[in-house]
Nucleic acid binder design. Sequence first.
RNA 1: GGGCUGGUAGCUCAGCUGGUUAGAGCGCACGACUGAUAAUCGUGAGGUCGGAGGUUCGAGUCCUCCUCGGCCCA
Length: 999
Amino acid sequence: MTDSAENSALDYSTTLYLPQTDFPMRAGLPKKEPEIVARWLDLGLYKKLREDAKDRPRYVLHDGPPYANGNIHIGHALNKILKDVITRSFQMRGYDSNYVPGWDCHGLPIEWKIEEQYRAKGKNKDEVPVNEFRKECRDFAAHWIKVQTEEFQRLGIEGDFETPYTTMDFHSEARIAGELLKFAMSGQLYRGSKPVMWSVVERTALAEAEVEYQDYESDTIWVKFPVVNGPDDLKGNFVVIWTTTPWTIPGNRAIAYSGRIAYGVYEVTAAENDFGPQPGEKLVFADALAEECFAKAKLEYRRLRDVKADELATVICAHPLEGLADGYQFAVPLINGEHVTDDAGTGFVHTAPGHGREDFDAWMDFTGDLMRQAVLSGSGKTQHFSFDSARECFVTAGKDFHTTIPFTVDDAGFFTGDAPGFGPDRDGGPARVIDDKGKKGNANQTVITALIEADRLFARGRLKHTYPHSWRSKKPVIFRNTPQWFVHMDMDLGDGTTLRSRALNAIDDTRFVPKAGQNRLRAMIEDRPDWVLSRQRAWGVPICVFADEDGNVLKDEAVNKRILEAFEAEGADAWFAEGAKERFLGNDHDPAKWIQVTDILDVWFDSGSTHAFTLEDRPDLKWPADVYLEGSDQHRGWFHSSLLESCGTRGRAPYDTVITHGFTMAEDGRKMSKSLGNQVFPQDVMAKSGADILRLWVMNTDYWEDQRLGQTIIQTNIDAYRKMRNTVRWMLGSLAHDKGESVDYADMPELERLMLHRLWELDAVVNKGYDDFDFKRISRHLLDFMVLELSAFYFDIRKDTLYCDAPSSTRRKAALQVVHHIFDRVVTWLAPMLPFTMEEAWLDRHPDAVSVHLEQFRKCPDEWRDDELAAKWKKVRTVRRVVTGALEIERREKRIGSSLEAAPFVHVTDDALREAIEDLDMAEICITSGVSVSSTPAPGGAFTLPDVNGVAVVPALAKGRKCARSWRVTEDVGSDPEFPDVSARDAAALHELRKLGRI
RNA sequence: GGGCUGGUAGCUCAGCUGGUUAGAGCGCACGACUGAUAAUCGUGAGGUCGGAGGUUCGAGUCCUCCUCGGCCCA
């Protein structure tokens, strides 16, 4: 090796166009990102984006509102990042793509928080005026909106955070109420009833999340129901049920059995006691439970025969309290129940539809079936049929059958008139289930006594089990039938459609990404019962209707107008203010006749109405939205309620496209949880690595499915980020020498044209990816492009040209221009994904620019497409691969270090491959100092690759001396006496530079 | 228990309507360079495609069952 380089007088590095940039290799995102956010806010970037795009077609992604009650978690981050990438990408692809963030503000969790604060201060919610309480809820939500706004902005989310929408704005509340009134006026809203968990102590309904299960001792009873119709030999026998809530017997309306369980008729053969069942009595039990039951009643027995399910289906019993008072003289049918098991009890389940969810569902299925068979009038009026008529009789005779569910217990736990003999008509007043202290009242005992008197008690006992208790008072709760407001799913809306049919049609007309969401939503709509809108709560939009005692709603547009105007001006608090009833009813209606409903709307109705008060009402938006995007849980939630609300009021979905994302799991694929300590907090990732790292994770993941996130995965993304960042950095450094001199496409070397062709191809991939919301496809292609084709190929080859060529070199100018094209495209394509880093890069390249986010994706002219050239270079790279492989051996054997020390002989016997490289400078492409190509077969021992036929390489050292400037080994080093240690090309470059005063 | 959905190298992902020895990037190991330098280039080792049956000349790709996970219900 020559040592002229070391002895050189000139430090040639100063004569090279080496990359020059202040764009740091290490990003320092945690520090830099907040500065960029601040700059965007100072600029008013959101407004600038709108101004910039004001003449473009609008693209609206409607934000599903997060709940305003805490810091954001990884799910929020995922969701908002996806939305942001969509809005930013559409903005850069020719649309006015604005984004109005929203918040869900009403509802239970916020009420809890406020109550919790009250408890801490020793206050009681019920002692606080409702509007004072609502005010505190409002302030609480407002606080978290502020916090989350900052967190979202820190993530790089661009949106109208100055004027977001919230469900608690007065205007929103007015419009939500208005939407409800549309349902009321069109007759879709009706009052029905449903059992809910009820705390007598607190006089309030409880949600599932508000109860906890504690040990409790219940009275248990086995009750005999006499068979009055069915198979002849069963008449007069008893069907026996078991229950842990004796007080629900007055509410019994049916007995559930299971078609999967074996039953038999059993006869008592001996009795230990002289009370209770006596020898000769015949009873039906599940076979698996008979022994246990008879033992409990201290009886001996024998089994008489099987009882089949189809026999049970025909059985009608009398109510065990039929003899007690008027009101129990109805038939108790046996109904098939999916929930019935033979694990415990008797194999028959006492069904009191007002006192249990499963009871209610089984009962509704049963009555629903009957209704569909059109044998019932469905008038809603209670008209008991005679129990000595057969079931066939009432079915075929079309007798009236009461489908209403009795309200047997009031809010204070007392029996009502719907429980004859136990309510106000009872001597000594109504019996009580639970008292104000949460202790058992006398209801159970009273019912048991009545059953004994009627000789309908088979046995009794006590049972320790877990039972729901109020989270707050720690007292037991009961299931209690309560009036609720519903929307019909299957009522003819006057045009032959129903809410259900409209919703199903709307689903067919909607694009789902991924496709599976369509089936999921459809299945839910197909199956769902009527929509319950009411909640017995304080913090929400009221169901602002007046109803008479029968539940008929007052329909008066003048009243509605007064309500909505008041809400618009004062918020929904107006409904709860003193004198509201008289104020809204006005002079046309007698306040004594009308009941003001005080229930509030389920928050799903609020968020289901966001399309009305944002998309329709804001001039910057449009209805319907182009796209809704949320987690897959929202098939049951927001997608669902928005669909129903919109179909009920407008006949179609409020969206054209629905995108769903999965959930974020810990690294092992399991749910993140506090107790496992495997949670990842977006705040931590941002503080340690930066928001762009988190965003890159989102971009690289298959978000349609559940994703995983943890330390390893974050590190993977940090590594990918670094690679991309360094590639961008190198371009910035090279482009520092770009004078913007352009070279005609036709004058460009093939390598440059190849890169333009690749850009043209990538352009299609990128746009298709954004169209399909398939971001990982884009990020994958771009990263691969940067790694495989830029860093390891194009840049590596062109370093010599860019660093060493003379200022006048066309090759160098063409390369610069291509790097410029690559930079502009790669950076803008990535800008929606990595908004901070690409902003930083863009401003580094274009110091006078405002923001990369105001840019549009650059077009790639069709002129750039050259499939033939691409095919040719595929062959070139095949040959290159063999050369590189041969050099690797030389390196391993320590015969060379740098590839520039080599000048191999390449024997290409494959005609197609040789043709491809014939007119090319393979030394340049292989980054060697020379390549000799021949078509003669290679000598034995030449290097080949198993998958490449017709190419063999014989390595050789380059002849000549090492150029002190370009480090290539050439024979023309020293040809210019003025620069004796450099090659001719470099000497010429030096002359030019000197002429320009550069050296 | 039901509806929907998923399990391909350490990590993230490709593998279209079943067809040659299952791919990529990163990471890792080793090497080179020292003018992208806490960077860059090269080479290599990693997979019984969750498991078991079955259909087929042939299955990661189709069918059945099992298993582990997820969302929503019950």
